[in-house]
């Protein structure tokens, strides 16, 4: 392994351990797990709907808490190291600021991934259990029905709990968390306090979740000029289109998540993340310590 990679992974590992010890991490993860666990109790309507509502609540919880975790944890990375002066002993070694930032970011990505896996496992287990219950109860209720009707009802249950679409929605939630972490790091690279970073990110999160609605409304109401399109492009860059990564609605509506759509989402996430990281590094390289 090259010396630069060794340094980056050493910083990422320490960041992971440091962030995993924060109280806010435990509180958020436990709260998210509790909500995922409780989702099946919140959704007792009918077998099929219950399964769908369970999915909706569980995926919503994973989505929201991963985003919250990404913002709250990343916002503390730089201010903590600067206040504690840990950054001095790190950057006094042959470590570039690029390596330092990348290491920090990868540490957060690792933490988000572990959290996403923990939440996803619980989510999948809950949905699988609900699916099994729904199958048993459907079979019992339709004992007198024709085999064709029973097969159709079971198909409905299986479709409601399709695991491959669930996995895609969970991966999209993680991608959204990673974009938010990169953007938080970007804001943090010039902000003077974590309070400012968190406030700015709360606004960006809100705008990012609503902008697609506003954009669609605007584009459909009038023929946009070049200036208006440029403005929309800037807004879409500064405020990432977070709604694009929320696949719960499509899942709930039974839409097909094509591999083309998933690839486009992965590309969008990569472009957003790389752009925000580059800007963060440009700001941080000029920052006085």
């Amino acid at each position: 392994m090259s010396a630069a990679l060794t340094r980056i992974f050493a910083i990422a590992r320490i960041t992971f351990i440091e962030m995993a010890r924060l109280r806010v991490f435990y509180v958020l993860v436990l709260f998210a797990l509790a909500l995922v666990l409780g989702s099946s109790f919140l959704a007792r309507i009918s077998f099929q709907q219950e399964l769908q509502v369970t999915e909706d609540i569980a995926l919503g919880a994973v989505n929201f808490f991963l985003s919250l975790l990404a913002i709250l944890i990343t916002a503390q990375l730089l201010p903590r190291d600067m206040e504690d002066r840990v950054i001095y002993s790190v950057l006094a070694k042959p470590v570039t600021r690029f390596e330092y930032m990348l290491g920090k970011f990868l540490g957060v990505v690792a933490l988000l991934s572990v959290s996403a896996i923990a939440m996803s496992l619980l989510c999948v287990a809950i949905i699988h259990l609900r699916e099994q219950t729904a199958i048993r109860e459907t079979m019992a209720q339709m004992a007198q029905s024709t085999p064709a009707d029973r097969a159709a009802a079971l198909r409905g249950v299986y479709e409601a709990g399709a695991m491959n679409r669930l996995s895609a929605a969970l991966a999209a939630a993680l991608a959204k968390g990673i974009i938010l972490a990169a953007l938080t790091l970007c804001v943090s690279s010039f902000a003077t306090s974590s309070v400012f970073t968190i406030s700015a990110m709360a606004m960006i999160y809100l705008v990012g979740n609503l902008e697609s609605v506003a954009r669609d409304y605007w584009l459909h109401q009038q023929v946009p000029s070049v200036l208006a399109r440029a403005f929309l492009a800037v807004v879409t860059f500064v405020f990432p289109d977070l709604q694009a990564f929320n696949l719960t609605d499509q899942l709930f509506a039974g839409a097909v998540l094509s591999s083309d759509l998933l690839l486009r989402l992965a590309g969008l996430a990569a472009v957003y993340t790389a752009s925000y990281l580059l800007i963060a590094m440009a700001f941080f390289s000029q920052r006085e310590l």
């Binding site: 340094r7 050493a10 351990i17 010890r21 001095y88 002993s89 042959p94």
Partner: peptide
């Protein structure tokens, strides 16, 4: 550094290992 702080959750040995990796 003056009044140096290091990662409090690491042991003395872990701190040195971390800085050894950074120092090449």
């Amino acid at each position: 550094p003056e009044n140096a702080y290091f990662h409090k959750f690491l042991s003395g040995e872990e701190t040195l290992r971390f800085h050894a990796k950074l120092g090449g």
